[in-house]
């Protein structure tokens, strides 16, 4: 069910600005892949190019290939909407729908696509997704209250629940724990472990311990130099990256001797 992703020679632009250059990697199915790297090096940009969210920004474009399950995502015959149904995403900043209740926010992926379902089915999806995102206990008594009334961290977990409610093949998470306390963070990490058995997960994080804890493979992104595009410096099994990295730059970044 889960899919692997092959990226070859990917260049990502914002207009004329080359943000990320020459990425090659294979993201394995049913595994967790973490991206680390300094701020502004293009992790979010790269992540968004994996489910064709990048092109939503006016003037943004991509060169190169992203192949999922034998299909090239940027082929003209590919429908970006279909891609996004299979490859879900949690954004760096929480973005619940302000007009919807907590309940409706979780079901948004189904409801907005007019998928018909029974009340009982809907209820169970909501409960399962919210439990997965470690939010159920906090909101189970006010599911019909607006999603915007939650705290920032709760909103982030609501967005995670919303993303897993549609059961995508691949889940892209952009710093999902950056606004969360250690307890929720560990709940999300447990969720990632659980999901790994049938999802492919890609996570961006600034937390080295988190990368080391949850991921099977780690990619280190860095700017070539200030003002230069970002690039993938190293991509290796997490154990190797954190114990014996190929590149001195990776070692320097991980051990905090950076820049």
């Amino acid at each position: 069910m889960a899919k692997s992703i092959d990226v070859s020679d990917l260049n990502i632009y914002y207009g004329d600005f080359l943000a990320v250059q020459g990425v090659n990697m294979t993201i394995k199915a049913r595994s967790v892949t973490a991206f680390i790297g300094p701020s502004g090096c293009g992790k979010s940009t790269f992540l968004r190019s994996l489910n064709r969210m990048h092109e939503v920004i006016p003037g943004a474009r991509v060169e190169g290939k992203v192949v999922v399950d034998g299909q090239s995502l940027y082929d003209p015959s590919i429908d970006p909407v279909a891609v996004r149904r299979q490859i879900g995403m949690v954004f760096q900043r929480p973005n619940p729908f302000p007009t919807m209740s907590i309940y409706d926010n979780v079901l948004a992926g189904n409801r907005l696509n007019s998928r018909r379902m029974k009340k009982s089915e809907a209820d169970s999806i909501v409960e399962r997704s919210l439990k997965g995102a470690n939010l159920w206990n906090e909101v189970k008594d006010r599911l019909n209250k607006p999603g915007m009334g939650l705290s920032g961290g709760q909103q982030q977990r609501l967005c995670i629940a919303r993303a897993i409610a549609v059961e995508p093949q691949v889940l892209l998470m952009d710093e999902p724990c950056s606004a969360l306390d250690p307890i929720s963070t560990s709940a999300i990490e447990d969720l990632i472990h659980e999901l790994k058995s049938d999802y492919t997960i890609v996570i961006v994080t600034h937390n080295m311990q988190q990368a080391a804890r949850v991921s099977d493979e780690t990619g280190f992104f860095n700017l070539k130099a200030t003002g230069q595009p970002g690039q993938l410096v190293e991509f290796n099994p997490t154990k190797k990256v954190f114990s014996n990295p190929d590149e001195p730059a990776t070692e320097a970044y991980i051990s905090g001797r950076f820049g």
């Binding site: 489910n51 969210m53 939503v56 909407v81 279909a82 891609v83 996004r84 149904r85 299979q86 879900g88 995403m89 954004f91 900043r93 973005n95 619940p96 729908f97 302000p98 007009t99 948004a108 992926g109 409801r111 907005l112 696509n113 007019s114 967005c159 919303r162 993303a163 549609v166």
Partner: peptide, 24 residues
């Protein structure tokens, strides 16, 4: 961000406009 949230759930553009942008 709201439009993007909707797109990322695999919602087509016209539905995003009708069900997310307009209600908001």
């Amino acid at each position: 961000e709201l439009r993007e949230a909707s797109y990322a759930l695999g919602v087509p553009k016209w539905r995003t406009i009708v069900k997310v942008v307009l209600p908001t």
